[in-house]
Design a protein around this nucleic acid. Structure first.
Lengths: 228, 228, 228, 228
DNA sequence: GATGAATGAGTCTTCATTCAT
DNA sequence: GATGAATGAAGACTCATTCAT
């Protein structure tokens, strides 16, 4: 039951992120114990799913007593939300906050450049938050709190912002004059499709991300139809 | 807790399907009791998720005793698999079996016609098996049995078949000369993206499926890039 | 963990009563297991108090699995109420129902005869339900459900009935013309005082109940003042 | 969670008393923190019952850290006893100590005057220590330490003293020649009955204590029997 | 075949108590 | 002295599974 933060090198990057996440969300120091609870919870939730995850296992993996978890998070569900809500915010942050990640705000020369930058940016984000994203996707259908977030943020703020961007490029003639919702859906499908295959379905395959992204953006813009 | 199959007209179609499914998978008669267990299980699994679903609730909804479930399915997990495995098979059936649904075998005049027919066909399939598909997606990460199926069937059989098809159209000049896996991924992303938005994210919206499918196929073939 | 209903002879009388109680309240057969749960619960609640009583101890004493308790009573509190509410009803039954125990309905020749009969009757009742009465007294302050019962039944029905009786005897000149509430309070105090001392404070002492009751009734009627 | 002693004027009287109590029992200075722990504990014990009371809630209400309670009282039970034992002593003090409250020592002209003075005195006492008395009554059955006190003090000292007093008045012809224990029981029943109804069962009713006490004493002396 | 009572391991959660700071 | 983070045993309650009827 030792707690050796030095050992698990594979998680270093994610730890960094968890720290970031907490700094961001709370602006107050997070105890090492709380951190190891979060890390353990992320692992167990991702591996077993929220319902099937036992707080006893989380405690054990975190190297703390079971009661300690409940000092920080009153219920198991609150622990879930503490992990997942900030990530949800960060996931859509580029669409919501100006000058946040810079991806959407730097005036891109072209739609193509914009799409490439965006894909690369989100790929990096999901890669660094893979487990949390898995948990998030799994639990959205069962957690009203998350559904609400989704509705309020994605369907109201994000869609509006993305619509603006899309119509901007439409006006410039870089995007064809088709219904904006269909364009958005199609574009996001291609991007998300790549992320899923890349990170979840076939993560172990060798990937040349730059080339794949370029290819995908090319498909988005020109399709896969032949000369006919 | 009566079980009146006549009442729930909305499920008639699905019931029909469940019957089909069972006929197919077992080739032996399915008792009405077993059928109502399956139907109840589909409802509860879809609503609560597998882990959070209680067999007692399933029994209650099915109008049978708790013990009865375990006459037919030795464990809760077996009940899950009995629901989900045949649907998985049917989901990929068009790619695997010849002359099954006919979608892939009728020699289409064009890739475009093929894609449209395929989308419509799968849309109909998912629509009629929505809950089961939900369950399937939810549980794949946690059920090794399903993961295995996925690997063996999708990644070996389906991919091979789809590769063949794609390369056929490539040879005919209807599809550009890009890496086949990327083409496949891109195409399926667009299709699945549509299905998800259409049936899961915004099912209540009014949809003109024919137009949307046409639009999507057009995007797949020619992209969304402007004249530049 | 054997369950030998024949052995505990001391409880025979009470068992009889528990059976009675349940017959009365449910009019349906009570399983032996349920009965032993009730008996064990009565013992443990009386000994430790409701809050400090562990369902595990009740289960152990009843010779059943802990889960079994919760098949019959959804919560620990429900188990408490199942024990205590019917007794509460029976405790005040003589005041509420006509011809129930007969104590209040037979036209007594005198107030004295009435008081004696009533004391004897209630003494017997409390003696046979001692533990439950203990539990009842203990838990009334903390169980809103019981408080409500108390208010609705005691303060509305019982007081009204007792007032009628008292005023009947007042009219007959057997009771002095003092404020009825004071008379009632005083009378009940004397009776309850005897019951408490007799059964709770000094139960092991040798008691000549008839003589004591006669004495108490005499005090109630003529006081303890000397000839002065 | 501030603790502003100035605000709760309603408790001023009781606070005063708590101070008294502690001065009495310990003869050493009591810190403000200890005082607020005691006050909070009285509130919580009275409201929830000892077993159901959480030390964390007491700490919170007292405005101290959870650990602080255990600096002063090693266990929760010790805290209970610290509250309840001194009150128990004071409750029976008039019977035990000479010249303490003076109630029993001033040579009363009559048994009647004595009873009235005694009732008024105890009414005042219980009124000012209502919560503690509640706690005391609740916990006597479950705390051997309290039971022991009860046996040793009440049943040995108090009864002896009360017997002496009663027999004194018996000798003077003010009390009839009936068994002393019955007389005592009856008298105390009437007094305690009044206190309970007055302070616990119907505290919100308007009471004319002097008149009620006079009435009650009259009943004790002359009973409620009519001229018959 | 069908039942549903019974099980008991396992769940999340609480809480009195300790102890390093 | 005072804190409050940490503990871990114990609590009420759930639930998949069994089996006698």
């Amino acid at each position: 039951m030792e707690n050796n933060p030095a050992a698990d090198q594979g998680q270093l990057e994610q730890d960094q992120w968890v720290q970031e996440l907490l700094d961001l969300s709370e602006k107050e120091q997070v105890t090492p114990k709380q951190l190891s609870i979060l890390r353990a919870a992320i692992d167990v939730f991702a591996e077993k799913g929220f319902s099937a995850a036992a707080t006893s296992e989380i405690a054990q993996k975190a190297g703390v007593a079971e009661g300690t978890i409940f000092r920080y998070y009153r219920t198991k569900k609150e622990l879930l939300l503490a992990i997942v809500v900030p990530t949800m915010s960060r996931m859509i942050a580029p669409f919501v906050l100006r000058n946040f990640s810079g991806v959407l705000d730097v005036p891109f020369e072209s739609y193509e450049a914009f799409l490439k930058a965006f894909m690369l940016n989100r790929l990096e984000f999901v890669r660094r938050n893979l487990k949390i994203v898995k948990i998030l996707i799994q639990e959205i259908p069962f957690q009203p709190a998350l559904k609400e977030q989704l509705t309020e943020n994605i369907f109201e703020q994000v869609l509006e912002r993305v619509t603006t961007i899309t119509e901007h490029f439409k006006a410039q003639g870089e995007v064809i004059d088709a219904p904006t919702p269909a364009i958005i859906r199609f574009t996001i499908s291609a991007i998300v499709g790549y992320l899923l295959v890349r990170l979840l379905l076939m993560p172990e395959q060798d990937w040349d991300d730059e080339a794949e992204i370029e290819q995908t953006v090319s498909f988005i813009l020109h399709g896969i139809g032949g000369n006919g």
